[in-house]
């Protein structure tokens, strides 16, 4: 007399193979896509904004740039007398709106933001910022699938009564 435990169903086997494949692809994808660490990864992100400012003379433009450079969240400023533009490099602490209001108050005249347009023509339909998270997404997918697979493999056989022959 020997006990025969029910075999794994074929759908379960397919699921296990699928999970193994997904976890392998996810981890390989992460290893291939991930970028090496660089100290720049730790730097605070900045944005660049250009403002059309009206100043009485060139010196006033340069001193305005100097003054703006001292504002919190501003990492660099540049005034170009030929373009009349004041370019500001700023962190999230200094938002564009905040800068615009402060500039208008400082100069006593309306300030306009120079709009730079994104390139026209064929572009990748997936936004750049999403593509940047591809390695992390691949790693999460791989680890999640591997965890599910481990859970399935470690599960005890079904608690059905064995067939007895």
């Amino acid at each position: 007399m020997k006990a025969i435990y029910p075999k794994t169903t074929s759908s379960m086997r397919v699921l296990k193979i699928f999970l193994a494949g997904v976890s392998l692809c996810g981890l390989l994808g992460w290893a291939w896509l991930r970028k090496p660490y660089s100290p720049t990864d730790d730097l605070e992100p900045v944005s660049y904004t250009a403002f059309e400012v009206s100043v009485p003379n060139v010196e006033a433009g340069f001193s305005l740039a100097e003054a703006v450079g001292q504002w919190p969240g501003v990492t660099a400023t540049a005034y170009n007398p030929n373009s009349g533009l004041l370019a500001v490099s700023h962190t999230a602490t200094a938002t564009e709106q905040w800068l615009m209001v402060k500039l208008a108050l400082h100069t006593g005249s309306p300030v306009r933001k120079r709009e730079f347009v994104e390139a026209s023509g064929p572009q990748c339909p997936v936004p750049h910022e999403y593509l940047a998270y591809l390695p992390q997404a691949s790693l999460v997918m791989g680890l999640f699938s591997a965890a599910l697979l481990a859970l399935l493999l470690s599960a005890p056989p079904k608690a059905k009564a064995p067939f007895v022959s």
Partner: peptide, 22 residues
């Protein structure tokens, strides 16, 4: 980069980049 953004001679080359924070 601020100098470049304020420079009308070349900032058009960087327009698409500056317009997208990422």
């Amino acid at each position: 980069i601020s100098n470049v953004v304020a420079n009308n001679a070349i900032n058009a080359r960087f327009a698409a980049t500056v317009a997208n924070p990422h």
